[in-house]
Design a binder for these strands. Structure first.
Lengths: 212, 212
DNA sequence: AGATAATTTGACCGATTGGTAAACATTACA
DNA sequence: TGTAATGTTTACCAATCGGTCAAATTATCT
């Protein structure tokens, strides 16, 4: 007999572990391209290589799938910002934040697009997280940046917009990948692209933040 | 009797002008939030205040609606880049490009999101335009930037990534508006936000591009 | 005003949507 | 090994999807 869903949270079997993993992997593929509304359970089922009712055995609704995926992805996504450290010197700290964010855009573009899709739609599923945990984390890091400004290590500027500009420039290479490829042409779309972007952005931010 | 659709291109009536306008306005509302796949003709019809078959009288398919909308919006969207001029001095030219792009993000956020949605989905409807006209335009402007570098007016850097970074930082305020609002808090989300962003970005790019 | 062309609508179509029910198959464990 | 819990599938449902059609309405022009 089919289990009451509650049992799953009590004890997880090997199969549950594997299948949920499989499903979320497929869901990431689909949701990151078409967004929540534009994605269908059938698409996810096909990518996952499972039947639709089988998906719905593990996640009761499309919403539940999406929520589980977002929850899973969120923590890692904020890791680079968390690593942003007040102790190090501003230049190397900003340099490595840019690097890390750029690496994530390169290595986890689907995750980046999943968020971008969510933002475009008005963040219906993560608004609380934005206003709560994210805001707090950013406030904290903005305070760090302000101490750098006060001690004259970087130029006086708005720390929030600084953070936004690092987010946007780096994530751009994941979210607008097609455009970047199209404009650079296929010849410049190899490994060199990443290094070129990193070099430019480090130059821009380090130069732009150097105290007068 | 219903007209053969061809007649519409021969002579446009007042009503056609108005209704097509109404429909595209509503389509922009809907497509910019949910993307092509995630949007329905019924949604657009409701926003437009017309019946679904009435929409389909003016645009035979959902695709046709979307294509007409993109075509209409594209030209204006590239205007700031076209205005980018080799004659002016780099500093004021870059400054005003940032301004213009930021103004567009503020005044036409739906248009920005329409494109962002299209990019996230792999640009299925505009890929040719990206590889053709857009690439050519960017190549042209990249050449301008290179002359600035050669004459020592700005620091040596990759002109393509410079353009990408201006695009991404400015469009961020339209595409990720929810996130920006959430992080800044509602108190900082008034008119001041725009000026703060403009000030920061000009400082960043002018400072970051100043020759050593 | 009357004829004709243009516009609008309700009723409807087959395909796809998210999701369910129940029979069937497999696994884990005593 | 038996059996109960877990996992999978087929068949299905009502709602919604993009789109059609013919009838009804409105605008245009002589």
């Amino acid at each position: 007999m089919a289990i009451p869903r509650a049992a799953k949270t009590l004890r997880r079997t090997r199969i549950q572990e594997e299948k949920e993993e499989q499903i979320l992997e497929a869901a990431l593929d689909v949701f990151s391209v078409s967004g929540f509304r534009g994605s269908t359970i059938d698409q996810i089922a096909e990518v996952a290589g499972m039947s639709k009712p089988n998906l719905l055995y593990y996640f009761r609704t499309k919403e539940a799938m999406h929520r589980a995926l977002i929850d899973r992805v969120l923590f890692n996504w904020l890791e680079p910002l968390r690593a942003f450290d007040a102790e190090g010197n501003p230049e190397s700290e900003i340099r490595s934040y840019i690097r890390r964010k750029l690496e994530m855009a390169r290595d986890f573009p689907r995750e980046s697009r999943l968020f971008a899709n969510e933002m475009l739609q008005g963040a219906p599923h993560v608004l609380d997280m934005l206003k709560g945990p994210l805001k707090e984390l950013v406030d904290e890091k903005a305070a760090v940046i302000r101490t750098w400004i006060k001690s004259g290590k970087i130029v006086r500027c708005d720390p929030y917009h600084l953070i936004f500009s690092i987010w946007s420039t780096t994530q751009h290479y994941a979210d607008f990948d097609v455009q970047v490829r199209a404009v650079l042409g296929e010849e410049h779309s190899g490994d060199g692209r990443f290094e070129d972007a990193a070099r430019f952005l480090e130059q821009l931010f380090i130069g732009g933040l150097r105290p007068d």
